[in-house]
């Protein structure tokens, strides 16, 4: 067998084996690998490279070496999942750098972090003043997780005492001019609905590059032809506007009428409508 055929055959076999090995070793990103997994990855690559380009090496030896370098990280990972103490040993523990707003100098020294390194890591987290931090911990992967003090945390709806409506994820129902049936079914809608909505906007489905529907069944589209103006959904904003208008009308009637009984009816209903607007407005996105 000529050598070049050996090389081709070896390349294919090793490629396939390596593919499955990396698949079984898990889906961690390079940045999340600990040093052990990182090194075994390099060694595996090296073994494959040597065995591929040098036909004189014994393929079986290569496979044995590959197997060892595969099975040990695999076993380590397996036992790490089972036992917390083994995980601490193999992956390392996180180290607290800042607690109760105070920097733990001893822990810094233990991890070999200088003050500059700490400040750099803090700046990575958009913190420029160390005293803004309540708690910071160095993860085993080498990233610093920072919990800012309460007053330095971003404002959330909870802080403002707001009660926003829960929002479900929008579904992509048209992609590249083709209807996607499964997302449509997730919203319990069908193709008839889609056709009607597109007819309302006066566009054909072939022209739709991307179409998405939100939880309220409002369709937003992007067209291939960017010159055509697409109407934005009006149903929901219109509903809220109509409700507000009715409420204002009722108030007006209450002021205008001289019949005290009617006045009372108008006022009561105006209040009811006001309550309804307050109830429904979080769901109508305003």
């Amino acid at each position: 067998m000529p050598e070049w055929i050996t090389i081709i055959l070896r390349s294919f076999t090793l490629l396939i084996i390596l593919f499955f090995m990396t698949k079984w070793l898990g889906k961690k990103q390079i940045s999340q690998l600990n040093i052990f997994e990182y090194i075994s990855g390099i060694v595996l690559g090296g073994i494959v490279a040597i065995n591929t380009i040098d036909p004189n090496t014994n393929l079986v030896y290569g496979l044995i070496a590959m197997f060892i370098w595969f099975i040990v990280p695999f076993a380590v990972e397996f036992f790490s999942l089972k036992s917390k103490s083994f995980r601490n040993f193999s992956q390392g523990k996180s180290t607290v750098f800042i607690q109760d707003g105070k920097i733990m100098e001893d822990n810094l020294k233990k991890e070999g972090y200088s003050t500059d390194d700490l400040l750099e890591k803090l700046r990575d987290n958009n913190v420029f003043l160390a005293s803004d931090v309540e708690f910071a911990v160095l993860e085993p992967t080498g990233t610093l997780s920072v919990l800012p003090k309460k007053e330095n945390q971003p404002l959330t709806a909870k802080d403002l005492g707001l009660n926003p409506a829960p929002e479900k994820e929008p579904q992509t129902v048209v992609m590249d001019g083709k209807v996607l049936l499964e997302p449509l079914a997730n919203l319990s809608l069908n193709t008839n609905w889609l056709e009607t909505e597109l007819d309302k906007m006066n566009i054909s489905i072939e022209n739709v590059f991307l179409g998405q529907a939100d939880n309220n069944g409002q369709l937003t589209v992007d067209l291939y032809d960017d010159k055509i103006a697409v109407p934005s959904p009006t149903e929901v904003p219109l509903l809220l506007a109509t409700m507000k208008k009715c409420q204002a009308d009722l108030e007006l009637f209450a002021l205008a009428t001289e019949n005290s009984e009617s006045k009372q009816v108008y006022e009561m209903n105006s209040k009811k409508l006001q309550k309804a607007i307050e109830m429904v407005s979080p769901y109508l996105g305003s």
Partner: peptide, 10 residues
């Protein structure tokens, strides 16, 4: 809207 929405709370 009631018929269209998927969220039970809504």
């Amino acid at each position: 809207l009631e018929n269209k929405t998927q969220d039970p709370l809504a």
